[in-house]
């Protein structure tokens, strides 16, 4: 009975509807916060992907019109422009190549974050999921770097500036440090997302304990954690943005110095009107 009350309170804290499909979740886990089982994570992920695809299927109807009339399609178009600004602004003229990838990542992370607001768990509140997308992102950055600079050129890039032959130990050290920093990029990308989303959950849970000692029924079961909702909503947007932003920055670091300095200027003013995106 006590468990039931606690669970109900926790659900309330997440402001919420009951997670019907969260069957894969095995609660408890370590240190009080729930982690998803393999099937649970897959169910969540495919549910979110399915949701996105259903929205897209609705939005696709208006695609043939001369002017986009559907509200949903207009949102998607806005997002398209936003992602385009992000890519072109940070990476440069050839950044459009990466748009589908960044668009997908943005949508998945953002919707997962929104799900984390209302459901007891979410893909992005799971470190394994975040490590997966971080590995994918950094791996893709390495792949693009090798494609842009050649395999040897890309590895040489890790070794830092050209030093005289006597200083080879330093070059080796720089190489090792750069390798570690590449690994740390994974860790930082995944841990940041995980920490923010899961931290939000834990903060809500911890705040729900506040009224525990009270004798008043209202205070005892008041979901204090729900008051964190606004800042959690902000976190949703910002974390999705930062993931995509950093992905773009890493991509631009490995690809930008070869061909198109002139291409960015053509798009310099595009981002000016928009609030978020960056222009260089």
């Amino acid at each position: 009975m006590q468990d039931l009350v606690l669970n109900a309170q926790w659900f309330l804290a997440e402001a919420t509807t009951h997670a019907a499909e969260a069957g894969g979740e095995h609660g408890g886990g370590h240190g009080g916060h729930a982690t998803l089982s393999f099937m649970g994570l897959m169910i969540y992920t495919f549910a979110i992907a399915g949701l996105i695809m259903i929205l897209m299927a609705f939005a696709k109807k208006g695609l043939k019109d001369r002017v986009f009339k559907g509200r949903l399609l207009q949102y998607f178009e806005q997002l398209h422009g936003f992602v385009e600004n992000l890519c072109v602004g940070i990476i440069g003229g050839h950044g459009r190549k990466y748009m589908p990838m960044i668009y997908t990542l943005w949508l998945m992370i953002f919707v997962s974050n929104l799900v984390a607001l209302a459901f007891p768990s979410s893909p992005t509140a799971d470190l394994s999921f975040n490590l997966g997308i971080a590995l994918l992102a950094i791996g893709y950055v390495q792949w693009e770097g090798m494609k842009a600079n050649g395999v040897f050129g890309h590895w040489k890039h890790f070794a830092g500036p050209k030093l005289p032959i006597a200083l080879i130990p330093i070059t080796l050290m720089i190489f090792v440090i750069e390798l570690i920093s590449e690994v740390m990029k994974n860790v930082s990308l995944s841990l940041r997302l995980f920490g923010n989303i899961d931290g939000g959950h834990q903060a809500a849970t911890a705040m729900n304990e506040l009224g525990k000692e009270s004798n008043l029924f209202l205070v005892k079961y008041l979901p204090f954690g729900a008051f964190l909702m606004p800042i959690k909503m902000l976190t949703c947007v910002v974390q999705a943005l930062i993931f995509c932003l950093l992905f773009c920055v890493y991509l631009s670091l490995v690809t930008h110095h070869d061909h198109d300095d002139h291409a960015d200027h053509a798009h310099g003013e595009e981002g000016g009107a928009n609030a978020h995106p960056a222009t260089t």
Partner: peptide, 28 residues
Amino acid sequence: GILLDLGKTIAVIGVFLILFKVLDLFFF
């Protein structure tokens, strides 16, 4: 206290490899 399951990580990479292609073809 950090619950990491590499199996899930690898599966997520697979899911996203599929998603990139499917969403690109389907909508983007």
